[in-house]
């Protein structure tokens, strides 16, 4: 089960930090698929899933950003009460720790979620046996 690559960008907690990064992606024709920011007093970690991961890394590195690419799990669940709980319960029952997660792409009675776990392989197996729909990088690019 091929995981999804997420790019994390280290940005300063300053005016237009975020805008500048997005500007670079726009300039290079890269389309965002999912995005989230973790903010602290001094800095932000911008997490992105894009339609062309390699190109995004290249252009951001050229502009001297500190980047990190991590494999994350992405799932699609029905837009129903308890759907997310179901997923988290499966992970918990199988000893998988969730670092963070964020929602992207809602619509057509479905919601897609990025989940960063401590053990991707274990998570993939657990979700598969629980019948949860997992997404690949290509699936997301095509959405």
């Amino acid at each position: 089960m091929a995981n999804v690559r997420q790019i994390s960008v280290f940005i300063e907690n300053k005016i237009n930090s975020l805008g500048t990064v997005l500007g670079i992606l726009k300039k290079n024709g890269i389309n965002l698929r999912a995005m989230s920011i973790a903010d602290t007093r001094d800095f932000g970690i911008l997490r992105l899933i894009v339609n062309d991961t390699d190109k995004a890394c290249e252009v951001l590195a050229q502009s001297e950003y500190a980047l990190n690419v991590s494999d994350v799990v992405a799932v699609t669940i029905p837009d129903k009460t308890g759907a997310l709980s179901y997923v988290l319960d499966i992970l918990g029952a199988n000893g998988v720790n969730v670092e963070y997660l964020y929602v992207f792409m809602s619509g057509q009675a479905q919601v897609s979620i990025v989940i960063r776990v401590d053990d991707n392989e274990k998570a993939n197996k657990a979700l598969k046996s629980g019948g949860v729909v997992q997404l690949t990088e290509n699936d997301i690019a095509a959405m």
């Binding site: 280290f10 500190a66 990190n68 670092e99 963070y100």
Partner: peptide, 10 residues
């Protein structure tokens, strides 16, 4: 921070 010291986790 050096680029190689960066992580995706706060």
């Amino acid at each position: 921070l050096n680029p190689d010291q960066f992580s995706d986790k706060v």
